[in-house]
Structure formats: C-alpha cells, structure tokens
C-alpha cells in the first residue's frame, strides 16, 4: 500500500487536473448549449492562452500583467475567429462545424510552430507561487497547484452564478431554446454569440496558461487535453455546467490515480514485468473505459440537459 499522504497528494493532483478539464469543458459546453456549435478547435485556445501569456509575461516581466494580457488576447482571437470564420456556419450541421474547426486546428498549431518553434517551452512559475503549503500535519502540497485548484473552483462558482442568477445568464439559457425570442427582447443575438464564444475561448485560455508551468507548452498541446475534455462532456452530459463539473473531477481523479497507482497495484497481483507493460497501457485507457461504462448505463451522460 502506498502511504496515505501520497494517495492524498495524488488525489489533489487529480482534483487540480479535473479543475482544468472543467474550465475547458465549461467553455465548450456553453458554446454548444447556446449556439449548438461544435468547436473542435477549443483546444487551440488552450494552447493560444498558454503561448500568449508566456510571451506577455516575458515581455512585461510581471506575471499578473502577463496573465491579464494573455487572457485578453485569447478572448480577442476567439472573437475574431468567430466573426471571420465560424459565424456563417451556425446554420449548418455538426459535420461542417467539425470540418471547419479541424482546419482551424491545423492552422493554429502550425502558426504557433512558426512563431515559437516546435520544441517544448519552459514556462517558469513566478517566485511567489513556488514552494509548498501544509494541508495538514506532514502533508505538503505545491502552492502553485493549490492556487490552480482555488482559481478553478472560484471560476466555477462565478460561472454558476452568472448562468443561474443574472440577466446575462437568463439570455444565455434562453438563447439555446429560443433565438427569435431574445432577438425580440432587443438583444443583439449576433453580438451575444460572439461574446459568449470569446468568453468560452478565454476560459480555455485560462486553463492553458495555468497548465503551462505544470505540463508541456508545445504546439498541439490543446488536442491532447481536448479529447479528454470530450470524455468529460460525454460522461457529464452535453450542455450541462453541473455535468461538466462532476465529469471533470471524475475524469481528473480517475486518470491521475490510475497513472500513479495502477502499475504498483497490478504488481501485487501479477508478475512485476507484466505489470510494467500492462499498467501504463491500462492507465492510459482508464478514462475511456469509464466513458464506455457510463454510456452503457446512461447514454445521455450523468446530467442530461433538458430537451436535447
């Protein structure tokens, strides 16, 4: 048995990964729920957020300023893409959404490779975010990761408040079901869509810039996480913020614990060499098997949104 503190630390790592998956999934599910638009290029904004912030931090020498600039930049790029390319596609079917945003992925990945190169970049965490915090006696946890968890939870709470308690949220929820109705209320639907799309991209950018110091910053980083985000959404239920939250934590924890403990766990049951090869293979498949299981029991996900 691994020591309990290690299990606890990995559990927190799982929550931290889950929180980032949630930021991604929330943007994706919001855009889908409102515009009925499938954005395969959502991962690109995760990547753009990381790169823009890194560049802005280096340019300004200030982490906070870099984060603000990076987020604003991602928001702008998102809105620009919506206006230039995607707006005309809302009336088309999902197949067209997928194909067009697939083209965007190729473009952005290559563009980033042209500007910053294909190699892995180092994203140093600022001085004041280094070190550890003591969660309870004898258990130290990296301060940066703890901050990521808190930021993610705060954004989640804010999102919940906006969607359920504000006029904007009311419009957002109405937009999904009744476009003409909100247009009749005098709201500029096109503008609303652009803003919501940009906002979803900024959420992805936030996840990306926080991921920078923990994982790799390289072209194509967005797609690695995007497909895991799809698993989150399939498990949680499409169009549901609550489902995205539960699904993200579930996937984050299962994936992290699987990678950390599946191999030693298998080694106690089968030969260590067999465990060495089967462990990582099984760990990498774990969340997909979880998805298959959820689908078999609840084809609409854990929290299906109404009417869809």
């Amino acid at each position: 048995m691994p020591p309990l503190t290690l299990v606890f630390e990995q559990l927190l790592n799982g929550v931290q990964f889950g929180v980032m998956l949630f930021l991604m999934a929330a943007g994706l599910t919001l855009v889908f729920g409102i515009m009925n638009f499938v954005n395969l290029a959502h991962g690109s904004f995760y990547m753009i957020g990381a790169y823009l912030t890194l560049a802005a931090v280096q340019w300004s020498g200030n982490y906070i300023a870099g984060v603000v600039l990076g987020l604003a930049g991602t928001l702008l790029v998102g809105m620009l893409v919506e206006v230039v390319a995607l707006r005309t596609l809302y009336a088309r079917d999902h197949l067209d959404h997928v194909l067009a945003t697939f083209g965007l992925i190729l473009f952005f990945n290559e563009l980033v490779a042209i500007i910053w190169g294909r190699t892995l970049l180092d994203f140093p965490r600022p001085e004041w975010l280094r070190g550890h915090v003591e969660i309870f006696a004898g258990s130290r946890y990296p301060f940066y990761r703890a901050v990521v968890i808190l930021v993610g939870l705060a954004v989640g709470a804010g999102l919940w408040y906006v969607v359920t308690r504000t006029r904007l949220g009311m419009l957002i929820r109405a937009g999904a079901s009744n476009r003409t109705m909100i247009a009749a209320l005098g709201v500029n639907v096109r503008l609303l869509y652009t803003v919501v799309f940009g906002f979803g991209c900024a959420l992805a950018g936030l996840a990306g810039l926080m991921a920078g110091p923990i994982y790799a910053v390289l072209p194509g980083m967005g797609e690695m996480i995007l497909i895991q985000v799809f698993v989150v959404i399939v498990i949680g239920g499409l169009g549901s913020i609550r489902g995205a939250f539960v699904g993200a934590l579930l996937v984050g924890i299962v994936d992290t614990l699987g990678r950390a403990f599946l191999r030693p766990l298998l080694a106690t049951m089968i030969s260590p060499t067999a465990a060495d090869s089967a462990g990582p293979a099984l760990a990498s498949m774990l969340i997909y098997l979880l998805m298959a299981l959820v689908l078999a029991v609840r084809p609409e996900g854990l929290f299906p949104s109404r009417g869809r």
Partner: peptide, 28 residues
C-alpha cells in the same frame, strides 16, 4: 456503444475511443 448516441455525442465518442487505441499503441 456509440451508435445509441447521436449528433455531437457520436462525434466525440468515436474520437475518444480512437484516441484510446492511439494511447494503447504508444504505451505498448
């Protein structure tokens, strides 16, 4: 597993399962 789902779900599920096989290939 996936055909019971429709539309966007189907796209995501088929993509996810293929990625699972991709990771399986990488890890062996």
């Amino acid at each position: 597993v996936s055909i019971r789902a429709s539309g966007m779900y189907f796209i995501m599920i088929t993509l996810a399962f293929t990625q699972m096989l991709y990771y399986l290939g990488i890890s062996i």
